[in-house]
């Protein structure tokens, strides 16, 4: 497959401390690529380098076959970046923020309705546009920033902890957007939770102290390290009727009745997916996987390396 992003031996340090150390990785065009790691693992630094905001100390980064440092103007046109913090002006209303960003992106005033408003509607922001962000909840602020990032129709979309503060509904809308544009746009996401992005990422790397500790797919990961998966299924009228019937399903290690939610523990996420296929989902409100935790995964890797 054609590479959208290529990093060759990329390093970055702050005050003599290496935040990224000799990273080499390729990201396929049109894929969804996830970067996972603890806080301080180097995820945000890597994303800021990919978004052209930060320059690496060593190494080269190519986006769409062009070296960033030599083609900054062209690359900035196709890359959009959502940091892990707010990117709106608190002194402007939501609508003014979008118009300001649109002006910077080269979207003409007459094109605003056609190019920006569909995203505003998609992320349910119509009612908030005339208010100032100080009156917004955390989730609404995040939605405003996501719209700002997506409005330029970029080819490469870099999202640093995109679901931070988002409720289940908006998270689903964002994931649907990502799935809809799979193959067409390249998404690079970061998170410190596997569960958040395991359903949409094609491939991921695990960063630890600025180095890649794992690079592969969900299947690779499950094959490499067995960790239990905790799947929560929320039912409209309670799931206690399921608790007993599920106890004999071979993939399930344990079933916990949590009132309206049933928690199912399996060996891995693939087993949980096969359990889902056996359940009547008509009464289901939401499904949420609180699977492999980053700490557990890194600890497992460390133990394996020690052996």
């Amino acid at each position: 497959m054609e590479a959208s992003i290529t990093l060759k031996n990329v390093s970055k340090h702050y005050k003599k401390k290496y935040v990224l150390s000799g990273l080499t990785v390729g990201i396929e065009k049109g894929s969804t690529f996830a970067i996972i790691g603890r806080n301080g693992a180097g995820k945000s630094t890597l994303l800021r380098i990919l978004s052209t905001i930060l320059e690496p100390d060593n190494g080269t980064v190519y986006i769409s076959g062009k070296e960033i440092s030599k083609n900054l103007r062209d690359i900035k046109k196709i890359v959009a970046y959502l940091p892990d913090h707010d990117i709106h002006d608190p002194w402007l209303t939501g609508g003014e923020n979008l118009r300001k960003r649109a002006a910077y992106l080269g979207i003409k005033t007459e094109e605003f309705q056609e190019k920006v408003m569909p995203l505003v509607e998609m992320f349910h922001l119509e009612k908030e546009l005339s208010d100032y962000p100080v009156t917004y909840s955390r989730g609404v602020k995040r939605r405003l920033d996501i719209v700002q990032v997506l409005m330029g129709n970029p080819e490469v979309i870099i999202l640093d902890e995109p679901t931070m503060g988002l409720d289940y509904l908006v998270r689903t809308i964002l994931f649907k957007y990502i799935l809809k544009h799979k193959g067409e746009k390249t998404f690079v996401l970061s998170s410190n939770e596997f569960s958040e992005i395991q359903t949409i990422a094609d491939r991921w790397i695990v960063l630890d102290h600025g180095q890649i500790r794992f690079d592969g797919t969900l299947e690779n990961m499950v094959a490499q390290i067995e960790l239990p998966f905790f799947g929560n299924i929320e039912f409209q009228h309670g799931g206690s009727h399921l608790t007993k019937s599920l106890e004999h399903v071979p993939e399930i290690k344990e079933v916990r009745d949590l009132g309206k939610t049933v928690q199912i523990v399996t060996d891995n996420v693939l087993d949980f997916v096969s359990v889902l296929k056996k359940i009547n989902l008509d009464d289901v409100l939401s499904i949420f996987g609180s699977s492999i935790h980053i700490e557990e995964f890194l600890n497992k890797l460390n133990v394996d390396e020690d052996f």
Binding site: I53, K77, H85, I87, H88, D89, R101, G152
Partner: peptide, 11 residues
């Protein structure tokens, strides 16, 4: 974030 708002545009 305001710097990022502008820095992450084509300018």
């Amino acid at each position: 974030g305001l710097i990022d708002q502008i820095q992450s545009t084509p300018l």
